[in-house]
Design a protein around this nucleic acid. Structure first.
Length: 561
RNA sequence: GCGCCCGUAGCUCAGCUGGAUAGAGCAGUGGCCUUCUAAGCCAUUGGUCGCAGGUUCGAAUCCUGCCGGGCGCGCCA
């Protein structure tokens, strides 16, 4: 519909150009937007204002010229000039009602588009170290990342969801040492407790499981606790498997699935790290200083050069990172989105610089990043501190257990990623009208309830028949709902384009609110069969769109509450 | 000190990348259940969009400078 109006306006402009009322070489940029106020019709455009200058006239006069040259359309009832020179388009009832047909015939596919035309995209998210349970920050990443996957699929991408496991490096050694210390009965208060050791309760759990010889299945690995507190290698293998199993379990309970797990250790095993280092050396962007090997990342906008190989000989973390991203590129992902916490912000410039230095023709802005800001958890009006090292923090599984999967996902995805998030456990837990997730789900359940009731009362309803007679839908609230429904595909498109899943949550809230208002103002199951059937069609369409939207958020759409 | 993010109602946040009188939920106040689920609805209170300049027909939105908060600034990951 928006496109139709844009087309009509372009035709009008073309004829203004050919009649030389505006210069033929004028480049015209204008918007066609949904109106906020129904007094302004259904769509509004600012063309006249942007054309006022080239036309050497005032906006309202230009607006009139455009109206005079606007082709007739059965979809548009009238066009008005308003305010400083807006053109307000009022749609005909028939074209407004046609959205219900669109929704019901497309069903679960309503709102999907093929803008990306099957383009491959990889979304990397969570990527937590296997050194402890997932905390709320990971949860936010999981909720946002998973929604991004769903949104990108909805706009025609072929999506691969990937989890990068940092199962190499210092923090893993540290994990093993911590478990070992616990296995030997030591605690943080002891002198021989490892520096920077992990202090959480879960370390004790891992140590006990190891000493008890428990068996752990994680991914493709089967590990049995060797019971020997002196065997550090065995401890490390066991601890990583144990914690990975726990993370997998938490993610599964959270409804988040990955297509691929990529192990940092594999980059060393396959020689990709070495290969990357050689390529960087050969491309001439490296130098040695103080016994270390440096990459001149300042050539690519970094504020200082970065060490690649430490004096002691090991690589810094960013080398495997570059190797990993080169591998992504070589796997054919022209588009990669990395979702991560803003505390890792500094890696962006570094990784991109490393990729540029490879001289492999990788575009400058590749990969894309979605960063989420920190999460503060509130419980009983007090902040719960998140600190893996301090050992006391709220985990994803705590939340899922306490407030439920749907509410947790909704709360973590419903806010713009760029804003810090306050997760109020008490609010998310509330099974009341305080809680927006229930509000939206309730709208869905209500639509379903109306249909259940209709059946109970013996009313027959046939979709095709109802769709051929939608003209009884003339109430203001009905028009508002139909207008809202027609916005859904655009909301999906925008959310995907901008990589902002929270737009879906906002939309659903508005749609739900309008349905609840409508439900309270107008009875659906009335005597008049034509009115009743048309209203049922509207409810069915609302139900469908709420369900489709909740699907994008990974939140369930219950038929009964 | 430098970089990134944020600052909008008492609280939590939207604001579709420059549009019309700045919105929603919660909290507050006052109403609505013999009628399809009251997990709902209606009405009402509440604003110097952090501050100051600039850009233009028009700024919460863009540019600059301050102020305040968060996160980074390792031969840690």
């Amino acid at each position: 519909m928006k496109q139709l109006i844009t087309d009509l306006l372009n035709q009008a402009i073309d004829s203004l150009k050919s009649s030389e009322m505006i210069p033929a070489d004028t480049t015209v940029r204008f918007n066609v937007d949904h109106t906020k106020d129904k007094a302004h019709g259904d769509f509004a455009s600012n063309v006249a204002m942007t054309l006022a200058k080239p036309a050497k006239s005032n906006p309202r006069a230009v607006a009139q010229m455009i109206i005079d040259h606007l082709p007739e359309s059965t979809s548009v009832d009238k066009v008005e000039i308003a305010g400083p020179g807006f053109l307000n388009f009022f749609l005909s009832a028939d074209s407004a009602q046609s959205i219900i047909k669109e929704v019901l015939s497309a069903g679960d596919c309503f709102g999907l588009n093929n803008d990306a035309n099957g383009e491959k995209v990889q979304v990397e998210f969570v990527s937590a170290n296997p050194t402890g349970p997932l905390h709320v920050g990971h949860g936010r990443g999981a909720a946002i990342g998973d929604c991004l996957c769903r949104l990108l699929k909805a706009s025609g991408h072929e999506v691969t969801a990937e989890f990068y496991y940092n199962d190499a490096g210092q923090q893993i050694t540290n994990l093993a040492l911590s478990v070992q210390a616990r296995a030997k009965g030591l605690g943080p208060e002891d002198d021989s407790w490892p520096a920077d050791g992990y202090q959480g309760q879960y370390i004790i759990d891992v140590a006990e499981a190891y000493l008890n010889g428990e068996a752990v299945d994680a991914a493709d690995k089967h590990v049995t606790g060797a019971k020997d507190p002196d065997n550090l290698d065995a401890i490390q293998e066991f601890a990583v498997a144990y914690l990975r199993r726990e993370q997998d379990h938490d993610l599964k309970a959270f409804g988040v699935n990955f297509d691929n797990y990529y192990l940092e250790s594999s980059l060393y095993e396959t020689g990709k790290v070495e290969e990357t280092v050689e390529t960087l050396i050969n491309s001439g962007y490296t130098y040695e200083d103080g016994g270390a090997l440096w990459l001149r990342t300042t050539d690519f906008g970094d504020d200082k050069d970065r060490v690649m190989r430490k004096k002691e000989g090991g690589y810094t973390y960013f080398v495997p990172d570059v190797a990993y991203h080169l591998d992504k590129w070589q796997r054919g992902f022209k588009r990669v989105v990395n979702e991560q916490g803003a505390d890792h912000h500094s890696t962006i410039t570094r990784v991109r610089a490393g990729l540029q230095a490879l001289d492999k023709g990788i575009p400058k802005g590749w990969p894309e990043y979605v960063l989420h800001q920190m999460v503060t958890v509130m419980r009983g009006g007090e902040e719960v501190k998140l600190s893996k090292r301090a050992g006391s923090y709220v985990t994803v599984s705590d939340l899922v257990e306490e407030v439920g999967r749907d509410a947790t996902r909704y709360f973590l995805a419903a806010r713009s990623a760029t804003s810090q998030l306050t997760f109020d456990i008490d609010l998310a837990k509330a099974q009341s009208n305080d809680n927006p997730v229930y509000y939206i789900q309730y709208a869905h359940a209500r639509c379903c309830a109306v249909f259940r009731k209709a059946q109970e009362q013996g009313y027959e309803w046939n979709q095709d028949a109802a769709l051929s007679k939608l003209d009884p839908l003339t109430e203001v609230a009905e028009n508002e709902l139909m207008k809202r429904l027609s916005q859904y595909p655009e909301v999906v498109r925008n959310a995907a384009k901008r990589l902002e899943p929270h737009m879906i949550a906002n939309y659903l809230r508005e749609l739900a609110a309008e349905y609840h208002t409508y439900y309270n103002a107008h009875k659906t199951l009335v005597e008049d069969a034509d009115v009743r059937n048309a209203r049922l069609a509207l409810s069915s369409a609302v139900r469908q769109v709420v369900k489709n939207g909740l699907d994008l958020l990974g939140v369930s759409a219950p038929e009964q509450m």
